[in-house]
Design a protein around this nucleic acid. Sequence first.
RNA 1: GCCGGUGUGGCGGAAUGGCAGACGCGGAGCACUCAAAAUGCUUUGCUCGAAAGGGCGUGUGGGUUCGAGUCCCACCACCGGCACCA
Length: 860
Amino acid sequence: MDTSLAHEHHDADAQDDGYDFHRIQEKWLPIWDELKPFASSDPADKRPRKYVLDMFPYPSGDLHMGHAEAFALGDISTRYWRQQGFNVLHPIGWDSFGLPAENAAIKRGIDPREWTYANIAQQKESFKRYAVSFDWDRELHTSDPEYYKWNQWLFLKMYEKGLAYRKDSWVNWDPVDQTVLANEQVLPDGTSDRSGAVVVKKKLTQWYFKITDYADRLLDDLNQLEGAWPAKVLAMQRNWIGRSQGADVDFEIEGHSEKVTVFTTRPDTLYGATFMVVAPDSDLAADLAAESTPAAQKAFKAYLELVQKSTEIERQDDSREKTGIPLDRFAINPATGEHIPIWAADYVLADYGHGAVMAVPAHDQRDLDFARKFNLPVKVVVDTNAPVTGAIPVLDLDENGVAILPDDLPPLDPAATGKPLLGEGRMINSGPLDGLSKSNAIKKIVEQLEAAGTGRASKTYRLRDWLISRQRFWGTPIPIIHGEDGALIPVPLDQLPIVLPPTAGLDLQPKGQSPLAAATDWVNVPNPIDGTPARRDPDTMDTFVDSSWYFLRFLNPSDDERAFDPALADKWAPVDQYVGGVEHAILHLLYARFITKVLFDLGYVSFTEPFSALMNQGMVLSGGAKMSKSKGGVNLGDELDLFGVDAIRITMAFAGPPEDSFNWEDASPAGSGKFLARAWRLANDVTSKPEIEWKTGDPELRRQTHRLLADGPGLFEAFKFNVVVARIMELVNATRKVIDSGAGPGDAAVREATEVIAVALSLFAPYTAEDMWEKLGYQPTVALAGWRKPDPTLLIEDSVVAVVQVDGKVRDKFTVNPKISADELEKLARESSAVIRTLGDREIANVIVRAPRLVNIATR
RNA sequence: GCCGGUGUGGCGGAAUGGCAGACGCGGAGCACUCAAAAUGCUUUGCUCGAAAGGGCGUGUGGGUUCGAGUCCCACCACCGGCACCA
């Protein structure tokens, strides 16, 4: 294999005029570190401001391909705005609390801090090598007490406002690990992702943030983001909040002093409510059962146990038959006065609406399924065969084309067919509502209920309050002290932060309560009010709390007086461009929007939406699937060693639209490297001096250069980075041609084009661009060289290609003066031999002329 | 089931209602070389034709228009989210 030796020797010889990404990276990285070209804190800086933010990473090891794509795309935007003369705030931090650190700590018997900060150091070094243009002076970590102190402050502010509260609720419980699991930790088969145990429901007292108070605003304010956020994310958020309009109806209960309220979107069908169903796991069901017959009590207890043993996956299986038991209790339908039976069934959810429904089996599939299974009465109250203004049922025609008369319409018998009547129709069997349409009936019944005090218009949401308690060590301690008498005492602000204790002597293994409960020195404190013995709340906060306001902390991460400075927030926030994965489309973004509105209500910020624009980058896939360590996906470090930082960055940008995912196998980092070498060689070949007079340059190359200058901004701002790269490639190819077979390397247009290429490439390939800039005779850094203004005189074409179509098909083309008149162009078109041949003896019907580019001759 | 999105060569993808396939990958051929690598050049949607020149082509079927990948209607396929939410 002596050929390879020869090869290496040859490469070493060629070093001087060859493109060597290793050399370039090693040369420029320390120079940038010293220059700090991306510092953004100078108060005297007069440039207009922009805030570009990448979703901060979780330090779970070194950076991977997904990071490489996301941060390349965010960095292109950032560097673009800098070239446009903006002072861009582009900070970086780490979302460094969370379960993986704790699990790693348990596995290795170390402190989670060790693992976390070692990974941060590694990612930081990788980010620098990857040339992401961060302002490193603003680095933050959410696991630093200097950061999480302000989570505690936020919690206390929310507690003061009644937005943080405790309640009992059913949570996912892992009976093996003895711990609460987040919904995401429960596998689709209903088992724990860690222990493999079947997850059950358990009732625990937990801390919640009252996000449901903000449901309307969170929903309505999405309209402001229309067009600036991906339609998909807006739809997902709307879906998640899930507002339903309808009515609350109060039902009296036999032998029960309190009324039971149900929520319905179809109050018009109240006359058809033939039974009531309550969620078995609701307090209401327990109350009703407790006052019932011993037999019913026993049946309820057995049923509740059965329900609690069932897994999520069983519950959600829609082919599953309905289950339920009668409670032997009766409700009184406020419209008909009928006494209707009350059942407990798990198709009704305890935490939606009021945990109870009025069942209208004739007009609801679920209620009908239930009624048919348990032989409950079905009463039709909407005649869906009757025509309704504005929504006339379509009548089928018989074979003679005659409408099938109403007599022949299907019978209104859902009990027999199993199909509920869901369409529009006229009310029947509904007393005063008879004859009305759906919308009129809803209006009328709600008026009547309101007048009688037994109901009211209402809305309800799919959104639930945000459970923030975690029985974990590696998170922000909840700043509450529990008195001996059970009183909740907020930690006084001047005692913040409540710092996590050392892990020495602590068992971090999950065991049903937070490991902090066992840190006796830490958890036992005097009651701040009277000095009696008291205990700290041992739970920590969900890490989504940390990330719900971090964008404000970046404004001055070392501020030890307050979470953030409102004056700086006025200057910089909200974030102009947020970049991150669509996996955060719901939770993180919803929580950040919620906390921003809370901070607005508290008077700390003057805006109500945190992120003015959002870009979701796609994923880097391998074989059509998400890359993962376990599947042995492509390693970023290996790719960087092989192709260089710039080639990987430009590959990410060129692979397609930023929001689309792509297969790494379909990308061509080697091709990107070739392109960069081509570009770099232009700078190497330029022989003219920077002072050269542009006007003397090759006019066609100059025109192409200025077209890129003119089109670039629009393309960048529309995130068409792949198209920009293509345009730069075209300019590189054109410049090469002029050097090799045109005016030569000394031509002014060659220098001008190469300089513009260097500036354009600085957004994608910072190392290559910087080296080109130096070869062109300039000082660093090209990153701040500025995007030049195009010369308008060079954007005017001196000739254009006109197309002649016959019936929309191109038949001839010719080069014409752009100022050619319509008549003249039409004349040329009619004289074209290709056109004459195609026309033959066909008769011309119409001639469309769009001078100077197009003539279309339409024939009969 | 409901909501959102996407369908363009062998592949990734371009295209303010006006030349479909920019740019790149891959392929083929050529130059340089003893040879290779590197680099450069030519070519590359399908199809008929020796050529000149035709025909067909943006998921399917219709429509609007002088002209549709682009706009409208219906459908199909795939991807994503939600889902016993009253």
